Simulated scan of single mutants.
Amino acid sequence: MECRDFLVSGEKFKLVPVDDFEILKTIPVPQNLASYYESENYISHTDSTKGFTNKVYYLVKKHMLDQKLNWIETLKSPGKLLDVGAGTGEFILHAKNRGWQVNGVEPNKSARNLALLKNLDLKKELSGYEGEKFDVICLWHVLEHIPDPENEISRLKDLLNKGGILVIAVPNYKSYDAKYYKEFWAAYDVPRHLWHFSQKGIKKLLSRFDFNLIQTRPLIFDAYYVSLLSEKNRTGSLNPVKALFRGWKSNRQAKRTSEYSSLVYFFQNS
């Protein structure tokens, strides 16, 4: 499949399968990849609530902060938590207020500066935590951005206590909304998303590092939000009614197939 960068450049990129993993890779990978994040519309690096999609995003995000921590706290009591790709720090700020000892990594300088305004000092790179150990490490829609996910997972394993929990949320290219929107599916988000995962693919990847999958949770709202952006990619307009229907249909089908638009995987370090 060939997809266009709808956010920054308008360039086209191919999605190619990787071995038998049911993982797709974006090619080519631009040498100046950081420049493809330089947009005021790249929502993870801003606290702006301007515009309809930003307002929707932040309403959902606020609701999900509690939900995400509730899921984690069914598996671990508050302890030491690392958020990789922490953005502007909203999640770890919420975790801190719930009694967690929080730490974060965020490569983007603008996002780190916004986190500083919340008294959160995020490190630029994972190497800043070398030698430390954590009870929980989270990657909320981050693994798909990482050039070498195998190396990253190996490094994260070294930072995680035995029995610790690795939380990975990624889009699922086998969902109904992905199949419906095809090359216009917003969660392909090339070239920022370098990798595209199925459930089988993510499980096989993590099993190579002796992680045990103990729980999977759907991100129900992602189907609606991604459909909203996908409608804009396809037609040039948000079409909220159509997007709402497609999101609803995706979630309805996923109740039978388990192929939700995005999924959160909870892996335990053995």
Rank of each mutant, 00 (worst) to 15 (best):
V84N: 01
W100Y: 14
N113S: 10
G85D: 10
W100Q: 13
K109H: 12
D83I: 00
A86F: 05
L117T: 12
G79R: 00
E90P: 13
V105S: 03
S110K: 14
L114A: 10
K80T: 07
R112H: 08
R112K: 11
N113P: 02
L116I: 09
N108Y: 12
G99H: 08
A115W: 11
F91E: 08
F91Y: 11
K96N: 10
G104M: 01
L82Y: 07
Q101T: 12
A86L: 07
T88H: 10
P107Y: 10
S110Y: 10
N108E: 14
P107V: 11
V102R: 03
D83C: 04
G104L: 00
A111E: 11
R98Q: 14
V102A: 03
P78S: 04
I92S: 02
A95E: 06
G104T: 01
S110D: 13
L93Y: 08
F91H: 06
A111M: 07
K76N: 03
K76Y: 03
N103W: 06
A111F: 05
G89L: 00
S110G: 12
L82M: 08
L117G: 14
K76L: 02
Q101S: 15
S110L: 12
A115E: 09
K109S: 13
A115K: 14
P107G: 11
N103Q: 08
N108W: 07
L93N: 13
G99Y: 07
E106K: 08
K76D: 04
A86N: 09
H94M: 02
G79M: 01
G99F: 04
D83H: 02
N108D: 15
K80E: 11
L116E: 15
A115G: 15
G87E: 09
V105R: 01
L82T: 04
L93Q: 13
L114F: 05
R112A: 08
L116A: 13
F91C: 04
W100T: 11
H94V: 00
I92W: 00
K96G: 05
V105W: 00
P107W: 09
L117I: 13
N103A: 12
F91W: 07
P78H: 02
P78I: 00
L82G: 05
E106H: 09
R98K: 15
R112T: 04
K76T: 01
E90D: 15
V102L: 04
G87N: 12
G99S: 08
T88Q: 10
S110C: 09
R112L: 08
S77F: 04
T88N: 12
K76F: 04
L117A: 14
G85K: 05
N103D: 06
R112E: 08
N108A: 14
L114C: 06
A86K: 02
Q101E: 15
L116Y: 13
L117K: 15
G104S: 01
V105T: 03
W100C: 11
G89F: 00
N108F: 12
E106Q: 07
T88D: 12
D83N: 07
V102Y: 00
T88W: 06
